[in-house]
Design a protein around this nucleic acid. Structure first.
Lengths: 136, 136
DNA sequence: CTGCGTGCAAAGTATTTGCAAACCG
DNA sequence: CGGTTTGCAAATACTTTGCACGCAG
């Protein structure tokens, strides 16, 4: 599981520190999106020293590495979730509005439009919101 | 143009104040998404008294009314844009990453899936990012 | 006139930065 | 060992709230 993420980091010469492992492990265990603060609460159980800034920095690193994605939810907080499909295939995510569970959404139905209304299209982001099985 | 927005407000018994007019006029004139602060800068030219909190409150009101939408861009600031299509039809928006111009995106190709992976689907949000004609 | 709308000041909260110490490889 | 990573403290930036006055309807 986790090994894939670590490999990604290694490839780009980032160090595998205990905190980084712990953050990724946590995401592996919880199937849902987490806020920096939630992650911090967990890490504090294991590490007597642990700071929020370090978590912010690592989360953003993981996003850049394609290991995590950002999730939009109500409120002003940031949420992050594991991107399970690291095959590089284009896909989207579905988020449970109740518990924050996140799954890869298998198919992208967005057509291969390259331009429209004069725009050159660069990217699109889609998030599907729903209620997962166990929350229904 | 603007009249439609005002009508919406009236219908729900919100008052048409000079500031509210001015904000909507500004969005009508500028074809792009704006931050609360930018709007404030503009209003200060016309009104010698004008506060940021009032702008925040109005912007959120307009979103609730379906007059504006929130736009995601880089950075921590909020962006808002006019939602031109107030026919109630489902649609999305395309945003120029350079200048912030926003247009309605005509077609939604998202299929009418009601559930998948056990999720009951509630909604989805999509934003298309590109570069508009004049920025290319 | 009545209650919504607004300015102002202040508070609140999430996130970022700087720097020195710790640590991975 | 050397440069990355991290904690801590403090700063920053954006947004919200409370309250009194003003104005639209």
């Amino acid at each position: 599981m986790n090994a894939d993420y670590l490999k990604k980091l290694k490839q780009d010469h980032f160090k595998i520190t205990p905190k980084r492992r712990a953050i990724l492990d946590l995401f592996d265990r919880e199937d849902k999106c987490l806020t920096p603060e939630t992650i911090w609460e967990h890490l504090k159980k294991t590490f007597k020293q642990s700071g929020l800034p370090g978590i912010y920095r690592n989360l953003e690193l993981f996003v850049k590495q394609g290991i995590l994605i950002r999730i939009d939810r109500e409120g002003r907080k940031r949420y992050y979730a594991l991107c399970h499909d690291h095959s590089g295939h284009h896909h989207h995510h579905i988020v449970c509005v109740e518990c924050g569970r996140v799954d890869d959404f298998p198919v992208c139905h967005f057509p291969d439009i390259k331009s429209t209304k004069g725009y050159k299209i660069l990217s699109h982001s889609m998030q599907i919101n729903g209620i997962c099985k166990s929350c229904q």
